[in-house]
């Protein structure tokens, strides 16, 4: 079964006896999905729960997956809905805990590594200051497996409109990222 592509695995899930197929899809896609959710929630345990919720919805709504459709954009559409429900449950966007979002530590104390870690930290802080929807859009648009056509479908707009939205989000990120650091 491991040789089957995502669409074929989904056909098994749709047929109603595809738990093994679903676990295979989980193995293939849960890593990047976790990364996406973690960058938005800032909590490991929450992101792990949400990843599982997304795949349980894959099972529940398998019938809405059209044969031959690309799986990953469909999966991220579900993930966005799961996230929306998550935020709705929490009533409001909670500020992210920057300590909980510790990035991988540099491998040594070389200057380049330290600078890299600082840049990444600054980037995360800049992202955290952005509205959730723009943050989500930027994180999705960097995924090489999600084309702008896929994203346009996800967001229900044309490709050119989507690109303008990404561009605007990028401008906002840029102003936050390159703004002079606050002296405390």
């Amino acid at each position: 079964m491991e040789s089957l592509d995502d669409s074929e695995l989904m056909a098994r899930v749709r047929a109603g006896h595809g738990e093994t197929a679903l676990v295979l899809l989980f193995e293939r896609h849960h890593g990047p999905l976790f990364g996406f959710l973690y960058r938005l929630t800032g909590h490991t345990a929450t992101s792990e729960d949400l990843v599982q919720d997304v795949f349980l919805r894959v099972l529940r709504y398998a019938n809405s997956f059209r044969p031959g459709e690309a799986f990953r954009p469909w999966l991220y559409r579900i993930a966005r809905n799961v996230l929306a429900d998550h935020w709705a449950r929490r009533k409001a966007e909670l500020p992210l805990d920057l300590h909980a979002m510790a990035l991988p530590a540099p491998t040594n104390c070389a200057h380049a590594d330290l600078e890299y870690a600082q840049d990444q930290d600054r980037l995360q802080q800049a992202l955290n200051q952005m509205p959730l929807e723009k943050r989500e859009l930027l994180l999705l648009s960097r995924d090489p497996e999600l084309s702008y056509a896929d994203l346009a479908t996800t967001y229900g707009c044309s490709i050119s409109a989507l690109k303008v939205r990404v561009h605007r989000a990028m401008q906002e990120l840029r102003s936050l990222f390159f703004q002079p650091m606050e002296v405390r």
Binding site: L22, V23, H30, E48, V51, Q52, L173, F177
Partner: peptide, 25 residues
């Protein structure tokens, strides 16, 4: 900035997550 964003390190989930999902399923 795009390059920074593209190379933003992806956090790795717990290796036991697949097994936990299997059990939940």
């Amino acid at each position: 900035l795009w390059q920074q964003l593209s190379h933003f390190p992806a956090p790795v989930p717990d290796p036991g997550l697949t097994e936990r999902f299997r059990k939940r399923l």
